[in-house]
Design a protein around this nucleic acid. Sequence first.
DNA 1: TTATACCCGAGTAATTCACCAGGCTTTACT
DNA 2: AGTAAAGCCTGGTGAATTACTCGGGTATAA
Lengths: 141, 141
Amino acid sequence: MKLSTKGRYGMKAMFDLALHGGKSPLPLKTIAERQEISEAYLEQLISSLRKAGLVNSVRGSQGGYKLAYPPEEITVGSVIRTLEGSMAPSACVTEEKPLDCKKADSCVIRPIWEKMRESVDNVIDSITLQDMLEDYNNQSQ
Amino acid sequence: MKLSTKGRYGMKAMFDLALHGGKSPLPLKTIAERQEISEAYLEQLISSLRKAGLVNSVRGSQGGYKLAYPPEEITVGSVIRTLEGSMAPSACVTEEKPLDCKKADSCVIRPIWEKMRESVDNVIDSITLQDMLEDYNNQSQ
DNA sequence: TTATACCCGAGTAATTCACCAGGCTTTACT
DNA sequence: AGTAAAGCCTGGTGAATTACTCGGGTATAA
């Protein structure tokens, strides 16, 4: 049940944006170097995040990326789900279009997959980038 | 974050053993047919379950498999973890030997992976095959 | 002794992962 | 106006993983 690098790198990049991002956009290269991620690969990931509306881009020289919302409005869940899809352990319990299975009604395993998904969703939807920033600041004391 | 077929098929097989297993062992073929799983593939999975001590095997004619413990003593977690490994979303937060990362101390993402793992573990460790049997029996009313 | 069933290792097609390459477009700065 | 810095986009690719299959063992009830 590991996440792929998409979710992990994506979280690093988003936190980097929250921590180092200001008024002017952060170029991808800076983020990639600081987080030690392949730039070309991170470009793909941040492209998904942009299409999902989580970051904004500024093209051209001096361009880069910025969070589309203040850190307290961006949850870990929205980032991870954008890059990894549903947290459902089985296709029959995704939020959006659960794969329908004839035996869904009588299946005793399905409710277990559902609980797993819900419990993961609860965790990741309850943490925002702002929470992470605060943890980071408290740490350095 | 999907489980592979190992975990999913393995759960089906274990529940089948709990539901249909009696004093005499259930042959793999029967389980595979009833659960619509490739017999040769399921053999590999149940072999892991046997090595983990969750099922016992009886060789030879009239042989098959039985649960090694009563259903109330077998958790979903023990089955899934046997077949899938740790539920950690990142290698740095596995129960047994977390991959050590120099930045582990200062990492603000790590605690999130930890919470995810814990919450999944809580769900799957709190459900036994017996619970599933009861759900199944209540359903048919 | 024979049919049934578990045991085991190797092989394999298909898919996914984690990138890389290269060209195009946009824009600030000089 | 020219140039360099940046994002945008498509396609390719080697390595790993997944989900099996195959073929031969070995044990044992009948």
